[in-house]
Design a protein around this nucleic acid. Structure first.
Lengths: 206, 206
DNA sequence: CACAAAATTAATCATTTGTTTAAATCAAAT
DNA sequence: ATTTGATTTAAACAAATGATTAATTTTGTG
């Protein structure tokens, strides 16, 4: 039998190439030939290993959402960390993640727009969030008068907005600020420390 | 000669249909037949009035960026309003804009990703922002010790992040929070008042 | 009305694109 | 070395898609 272990190599190469191209251009704008070229492999191998463009996309998407949402849920559900520590962990974790994979946030947002039902059923977002340990902590903090805005969704929108938006608006922001990539990443590193401070100020604002 | 004034009607109908479909699906996923169907008109009329799919897209995109960035620049350059008033105006203006056109932010972000050079040269973002009256006001406030973070780009990223992100992450946020459209819009209305308060707290945070 | 220009339509074209096929190549086992 | 099955390749196919064409209808004008 053929190299069933060596396959891994080309199968993984195609997946890596697909991730690169899909992250940059999205599903609709990506041609199977783009992926083959990026991988340096024959076009037919995509269908040989993954049956169809759509199937390959769904694998990439599932893994991406799993990484993105999984890490968030893991931090939100950690019973050993305070609310304040969670803010710091989330900021650091996601700024590092998106600095390494800058196209990931826009990819997620764009593709969820184009296939909302299909994408969202991939993760049981609802119960995962509303039943998280974070929610309990947040409600306790509200009851103790340590948090002025009682709606946890405002909190999560604020935190994610401060973290994610700069990566999503990166091209516009870099152009208007006249920044290069290094300067942009420098700003993001600053935000790792600033966002927890800012969010704590927001939490106590009246 | 034919109804040169009546044309307006069908030409505008096509543009409106194109805007609807393009906002929802993006350039690459939109078929000219989708636009024709949405407009209830013959497919060939798209090329008759707009030469090509790309030309039609560019018109929609230009108008969209003009509205989006134009309004921002107008507020930032108003010499009659204080820094604090500008925050309130921007929050109110954009939350209303995106409540009416919920697909606009994701459309802008997605398409700038796919054609960064072409889109960004459409507006002279750089000088417009760095030479704005807002920058002067901001530097004055920093000098007067009223603002702790001296980099105005952090300020604008924070403000836009708080305003825009919920609309971009809407599908995920609605799913995780278990919200319907009305409840989501209600949250956005709350943010119109809260964001200025939050931003002022951020500005003074140490 | 009659005519000309403009607008609209149905049909068709040429290209792109996802997928398949059949042959060729490769790797391991006997 | 031969055989067998997996892998890879070049070629081709069928459907989708942006665009065009030629004919038809509509509209405004003298």
């Amino acid at each position: 039998m053929g190299g069933k272990d060596i396959n891994k190599s080309t199968e993984e190469k195609i997946k890596a190439a697909a991730r690169t191209v899909l992250y940059k251009k999205g599903f609709a704008a990506t041609r199977t030939r783009d992926i083959a070229e990026e991988a340096g492999m024959n076009l037919a191998l995509i269908n040989y290993y993954f049956r169809s463009k759509k199937k390959l996309f769904e694998i990439i998407m599932s893994e991406t959402i799993a990484v993105f949402a999984g890490k968030l849920m893991q931090i939100l559900n950690d019973q050993a960390t305070s609310l304040e520590k969670k803010i710091e962990l989330i900021a650091a974790c996601y700024i590092d993640m998106f600095t390494e994979e800058p196209e990931m946030p826009t990819f997620i947002v764009s593709e969820i727009r184009n296939h909302p039902e299909a994408m969202l059923k991939r993760i049981p977002v609802k119960q995962a969030f509303s039943q998280s340990y974070f929610i309990k902590q947040f409600e306790l903090a509200v009851a103790a008068g340590k948090v002025t805005e009682p709606n946890p969704f405002h909190f999560i929108m604020n935190l994610l907005g401060l973290i994610v938006f700069p990566f999503i608006g990166k091209p516009m922001l870099m152009a208007s600020a006249g920044l290069n990539k290094t300067q942009f990443n420098q700003l993001m590193q600053e935000r790792k420390k600033s966002i927890p401070i800012w969010i704590k100020a927001v939490i106590k604002a009246t």
